[in-house]
Amino acid sequence: MDLSQDEYLLLLLSDGNLPTGSFVSSSGLESFVKHGFLGLDTATKDTETPIPRLSKTDGTVNFIRDSLFTYAHTALPFVSDAHITVSRLRDEIASGPPPVELVEEVEKALLELDELYECMMLNHVARRASQAQGVALLTLYSKGFTKPSLVALPAIDTKDSTAQDTFLTLIDDMKLRIRASDTPGHLPICWGILTAALGLSLERSQYLHLFLQARSLISAAIRMNTIGPYASQQLLLHVIKPLCDSALKQTSHIRTQASAKSKNINDEERSTPYEDDDGPATTWPLGEILGARHDLLHSRIFNS
């Protein structure tokens, strides 16, 4: 078997042991369960009070479905734009060190994306989780994916070392800014930066991001005991794949329009009345409410 670099990266990045801190996040599942929504179905709407009727596994699948779609609609455009932005550097590196102006331009665009995501994330619990996982990904690049200096490993060639130096500088700078609270450092932006720096293709970066989000929901469900470890594998094989496929199909083309300047919406010359008709959006308002109520839970095993 001959694995391409892209395929091998997929193996590494999908490792559940990666120190990304996602294990402390349930993305609202814990709150969803505690508030009595697990297994709820419209079939009970004729009864006086809505009572959960579906099995815990079915209820978990419905949660994952609703949660994954709203996540894809809000976060994936930021993954895409961050990846595309950083890939501009990679294209340039093929012909030597990128000009300073380009590095600055890329960094500015990333900060704009981060700022817009912060503005659009109006749920403090999810915001907290996203920031914690974002900075962990940047650390992962500098500590976990740079080439180690080993006797057994010859020095890297000039082109590879230019790439590594460029991305390391960019990522270290982002980390400094995050530490100084200059920028929040949200997960989708940091994921786009990391995967573009590693040279993973945009399509694979998008797919993997949704897959990891879905799998972290599955892991949370196992910890919450709403599904068992064997059922989780069944879901990953038979349910998560079609979910990721269709979520990706619906959202992979969406861009953030972060760099589009503020326009007067009454402008006569506008070509379409709603410039952001296809921009990032929340598709599950109930999930927003339940997610933000996480901190109100009497006892909790997750941070979000």
Binding site: K34, H35, G36, L40, I51, P52, I289, L290, A292, H298
Partner: peptide, 17 residues
């Protein structure tokens, strides 16, 4: 508010951020 395990959803639910 201290939310214990609820058997079914509330008629009105709200959050603040």
């Amino acid at each position: 508010v201290s939310q214990f395990q609820s058997p079914s959803p509330m008629d009105l639910i709200w959050s603040l951020s």
